[in-house]
Design a protein around this nucleic acid. Structure first.
Lengths: 327, 327
DNA sequence: GTGAAAGCGCTAACAA
DNA sequence: TTGTTAGCGCTTTCAC
């Protein structure tokens, strides 16, 4: 193992000089700097992360609690994680992956000084982990929006606005009965934040617009076809549909479209790019959510004060703009 | 921050006693042990991970390089990761998530002593990271099986055997022309190990069986429908199909089945459980791959010598057993 | 512009 | 059965 002392010796300088060359926290003569950097390269030296962390009291690691269970939309989760990892790396942070069904894992990571900050995904409306985060006195960001967002940093897609946007679009097209096929029953039962916000946004828009709206849990499997059929048979006058749940969508596509019904998909755009028969798609910018959340954490770590709640606005992929429209 | 010294003081013992109570590396009187544990609980003490790692020269962290790019089968990736994280946690290890498009990230993690071992996913037949792993002198496990598996630990599903199994089943049913719709073009172009092994297994079985086999790249999007149609139109005598690529499968299901063709799916079983019209499914035990790979790493870390190559045997979900059958 | 040295919070000899 | 203490490899005051 090559240590800072090896580098110092090779460069003919003191240990602290090597340290300062790396951190840039002190002015170094060009000559010394070059010798040190040459030695670092030559020896392929990487500072010992733990030693550095012990001395500097910071780890350059962010803890990420992600839902690894299937049933949630894996594509979206993966893209968010991907955005997080990428943005973190670009800022010289690494990601420690914490299991989600483990509220106490947050405490472990925090109290053990394994991380500098925590990111928590898959937020429920009244998430028990929020209390834990409060006790921890460690910077944290939620990806999601719990009921009482109090004083926590939250980043998410604006699912309520998306529900509103879709309902408005459908109503404008003349549909009087519209339906939202959304999250799976389990997700709803857990009061997952995004699902509830989408439902609320959709239904409240329906009320405002004077159209009849209904929401239906939708399994993420091939069973979705059956659910959709059942709903549409029991209420054949539903002519406009908002379809969340990308996993189910691919099963249902072509089945629900092309029967004189307008279908809007709510999904990462690239996943439904080639899907025929859709009226339009509202993009879920999953990777961006991860990036923004990471930037928020980095800002906090840099002693800045980012917006408490950042909700990414929904847009139609087609470019249709309903902003500013009155109901 | 509560340190081991705080605990020692609260329990009225020395620092080392606290340390030994935690590690169990020395016999402690029942009385002392209880006082120390009480103090630990009372103070909610967690040892400082970096301090421990610096002194003990081990981190209890495993680096996992996972493909976060979309296009690969996200469901499978996610389940593998999930299996890894779960098994690791049960053995008191955490997972550091490394970006995949970054061969040098492995070096960073290793040389910086950020991890005790490395796991690498999404292996290509001639993966450049293998050389890196060799230089690193750090325990590592590949999830996948490169061309020259040399002396590395490899864990994966036996895709070659799966291809063989499916072809045999179809041939037994009397099909004379059979096709494999598999990975996307990108995945094949990167010479991703599992895709090539599946193709090879399928085609070599076809030769042995005297049936005509063909393999076709299949996009993971709704476009898959078009690809399948094109192939089946240009060669209508294809009556037996092996379908890999779960993402595409959900689009294609019901489209390719039910036309007098037998379709076998190669996918995690639960993802296709409700999919109608399939002849059978060969399960991809994704979570188990993660678990086995993690156990292999843990074995190496525990100075055991696990099998160099562990390939999980394919089985039909229906229970059909073709083992021992002659061609 | 540079160096010497005091910790950071642990583990694991060494001593008793 | 327990305590004392020398590191682990860094960062960061002091001191020059």
């Amino acid at each position: 193992m090559v240590t800072i002392a090896d580098v110092a010796e090779a460069a003919g300088v003191s240990i602290s000089t090597v340290s300062y060359v790396m951190s840039g926290k002190r002015t170094i003569s060009q000559d010394t700097k070059e010798r040190v950097e040459a030695a670092i390269d030559k020896l392929a030296y990487s500072p010992h992360a733990s030693a550095r962390s012990l001395a500097s009291r910071s780890t350059s690691v962010i803890g990420l609690q992600a839902p690894l269970r299937t049933g949630v939309d894996v594509n979206v989760i993966m893209e968010i994680i991907s955005g997080v990892v990428k943005e973190a790396r670009e800022n010289h942070y690494d990601i420690l992956l914490l299991t989600s069904d483990d509220a106490e894992g947050l405490g472990r990571a925090a109290r053990g000084s394994m991380v500098d900050a925590l990111m928590v995904m898959d937020i429920e409306s009244n998430d028990p982990r929020i209390a834990t985060l409060h006790e921890l006195s460690m910077p944290s960001v939620l990806i999601g929006l719990p009921a009482g967002a109090d004083d926590l940093f939250c980043v998410d897609f604006d699912f309520a606005a998306a529900g509103h946007l879709a309902a408005t679009r459908l109503a404008r097209l003349g549909h009087r009965r519209i339906a939202l096929f959304g999250a799976s029953t389990e997700v709803l039962q857990r009061h997952t934040s995004y699902a509830e916000r989408l439902n609320d946004g959709f239904l409240s828009a329906c009320r405002e617009l004077g159209v009849t709206g209904s929401v239906h849990a939708c399994p993420s499997s091939a069973d979705a076809v059956g659910v959709v059929d059942a709903v549409l048979q029991s209420d054949p006058e539903i002519t406009g549909i908002l379809f969340h749940n990308e996993a189910a969508l691919s099963h249902v596509a072509g089945h629900v479209t092309g029967r004189g019904r307008d279908v809007i998909a709510l999904s990462p755009a690239h996943l439904v790019r080639d899907m025929p028969g859709l009226l339009d798609t509202i993009d879920v910018p999953a990777a961006e959510i991860g990036v923004i959340a990471t930037r928020a954490i980095l800002a906090v770590l840099g002693d800045e004060e980012p917006e408490r709640v950042q909700l990414l606005a929904p847009t139609f992929v087609s470019g249709v703009d309903l902003s500013g429209t009155e109901v």
